[in-house]
């Protein structure tokens, strides 16, 4: 389509095809955007989802990029809009704009080891990258997924994580901040998993997604494991509103995160991440 005829601010209407609970306050929606929907996305990109009459929020794709017709988003009900979206029933209408942004550097990482470091809901934007890596497994070296979350009850995509854990060609380590009772996995912060992971520093690409504080510590732990900052990528979160760099909300220094990100190489962030309230 001719760019001049598309209004990037106008959503297309879509319906909820299925809905499943993936954790406390967390739901995963599969969305049917109709036959004329533009299909395809890169792992790490996001859509703007509208609860009609309530508002619009940026939500990363959490589905499989090798199945471009299936639009999947994992949403935590925190504000008015995300709560309205998370509670849409099957068949309900929502608005959708996108895909927007620059995703994970999976093409650049071909031939490399890949370590994915996820914190909390940050596993959702990384899941498409895992799907991509597994779909093209022979093109990558060691693949390691390190996932930290608050407690065993809050582990996302549990069944899928267990399936991945059983694979010989993927190493999965999960840690929680604290646990009561029957948890027999790791307890502690996700940075401890990085310290234990024995990464091959010179040929590893690191993909990090989670709360900013966690990403800061994770990037520092990866750097301490001698991974060059040019090989570390963070998915940055700000209040994206337009998705095309014209509303000014998601500025982070010289970056417009909706347009230049959300995935940004660590060497472009290291200095600015230290500045408070930027």
């Amino acid at each position: 389509m001719d760019a001049s005829t598309i209004d990037p601010m106008r959503p297309r209407l879509a319906r909820v095809r299925s809905r499943r609970r993936d954790g406390p306050q967390v739901w995963t929606l599969e969305i049917d955007a109709g036959p004329e929907a533009r299909s395809g996305f890169s792992a790490g990109q996001f859509n703007m989802l509208s609860a009609l009459g309530v508002g619009e929020v940026p939500i990363s794709f959490s589905g499989d990029p090798t199945e471009p017709r299936r639009i999947v988003h994992t949403i935590r009900a925190v504000g008015a809009v995300s709560t309205a979206l998370a509670h849409l029933g099957v068949g309900a209408t929502l608005g959708i704009r996108g895909p927007f942004g620059v995703g994970w550097p999976l093409a650049e990482a071909v031939g490399q080891d890949v370590v994915l470091v996820a914190g909390g809901l940050g596993l959702a934007p990384l899941r498409p990258a895992v799907y991509h890596l597994l779909a093209q497994r022979s093109r990558y070296g060691q693949i390691t997924l390190l996932y930290g979350t608050r407690s065993p009850a809050e582990i996302l995509f549990r069944r899928e994580l267990n399936a991945w854990r059983r694979r010989a060609d993927l190493s999965v380590e999960v840690t929680v901040d604290h646990a009561l009772g029957a948890w027999d996995g790791h307890i502690g912060v996700v940075t401890a998993l990085i310290e234990r992971a024995h990464l091959a520093a010179r040929h590893t690409t690191a993909l990090v997604c989670g709360p900013e504080i966690m990403m800061r510590f994770a990037a520092e732990a990866l750097a301490a494991a001698l991974i060059p900052s040019e090989s570390i990528y963070l998915s940055m979160e700000r209040n994206m509103q337009c998705g095309v760099g014209l509303c000014g909300h998601c500025q982070f220094g010289g970056l417009l995160l909706c347009r230049d990100g959300p995935v940004i190489r660590y060497d472009r962030l290291r200095e600015t991440l230290r500045v408070r309230e930027l």
Partner: peptide, 18 residues
């Protein structure tokens, strides 16, 4: 020092919903 930093991170409860 590493364990102190880890304890701080856990204290922050960074994975919460705001």
């Amino acid at each position: 020092v590493q364990r102190l930093q880890a304890a701080r991170l856990q204290l922050l409860d960074v994975y919460g919903a705001g």
